[in-house]
Amino acid sequence: MHLKTTGKLIVVLIALAVTGLAKLPLEQRIASDLREARLLPRPLDLDTREKLGQTSFAIVLGGLRSLVAAMLNLKAHNHWEKQEWFELEKDYRTITTLQPRVRYYWETAAWHLAYNAYADYRDKPGVPAARARTLQRQFQKKGIAFLELGTENLPDDWRMWVALGNLLRDPHKERDLPGAAAAYAEALERDGVPERIRRLHLYTLAVIPGRTEDAWKAMQDVWAVESNRHFPSVRSLYFALQHARLPAAERLPLDAIYPDRPTALLDLSWHWNRRDEGLPMNGVREAIESLLREFPIPEKYDPLGAEPGRWGGFPPDLLQSR
């Protein structure tokens, strides 16, 4: 009886091996399809296995990666509340390894590191200023690195590229405007991207020194969409960029850009107020001077006399009453 069972076991093993050889190509084909569709879970490296611990690793092996990632996200939340940024970073490294196709985790990791940790080190008690500054830069880079990895894992998701662009152009941090413009340009290549990203791309290009030609090209795409022309920034940029790029005869007149002349004065004045941001100002001063001759205003409201960023606007109804 014992021999009979052993014999059958051997036959079963041989049969499993033979049928296994037959099923192997099919398994590999399905795995390849899944990999192509980015649905195949990535194998865990030793580092992640160690961080997970035995129990979580067993759960992950059982195919419950999403559950473990969700739980680790709650754990990371506790680290956030205690401002334990290095532990939080480790958690998100594990979480994003477990769920690389979930944008939320990449975004949240970057948000915590590049915004929350960055802000925390601005005035963290007991940390010398120089050290705090180094840590701020370090965490900003960590945040950027998370988003860059996110774009590698979700290359078709325009939101991932936009998140990277937004971080790189954040005015409160060291900016990488060419990098931000490149990220927005990538986003624009994807399906379903909203029109505001086209405008963001334009605004970013417009403030990069030496990229006026690229900004003008981007402006053609933005201007081609009627709804974009309602935005004051778009109108004023169009005005300045066409002065930078086109001969006078080919430029659109002021009345073709703005709905009326008081609006032109208002929008151009706000644009002039932002001259320390690096925006093109070609022809803006002259246009404001000309419009001010049409609409004389008290000197205290003169946009040309105010310091950049200090102009307070016109009082309500000032232009309409004239």
């Binding site: 399905i30 980015r38 879970p41 195919g63």
Partner: peptide, 30 residues
């Protein structure tokens, strides 16, 4: 790997939970 079934292929459940789209062709092959 020849003897054991490849349970990794059923990981699409996790992908579906993550919000990924599962093509019908893949489900048919599965």
């Amino acid at each position: 790997s020849v003897i054991f079934p490849d349970f990794r292929l059923y990981g699409i459940t996790d992908a579906a939970v993550g919000g990924d789209t599962i093509p019908l062709g893949i489900l048919a092959k599965l």
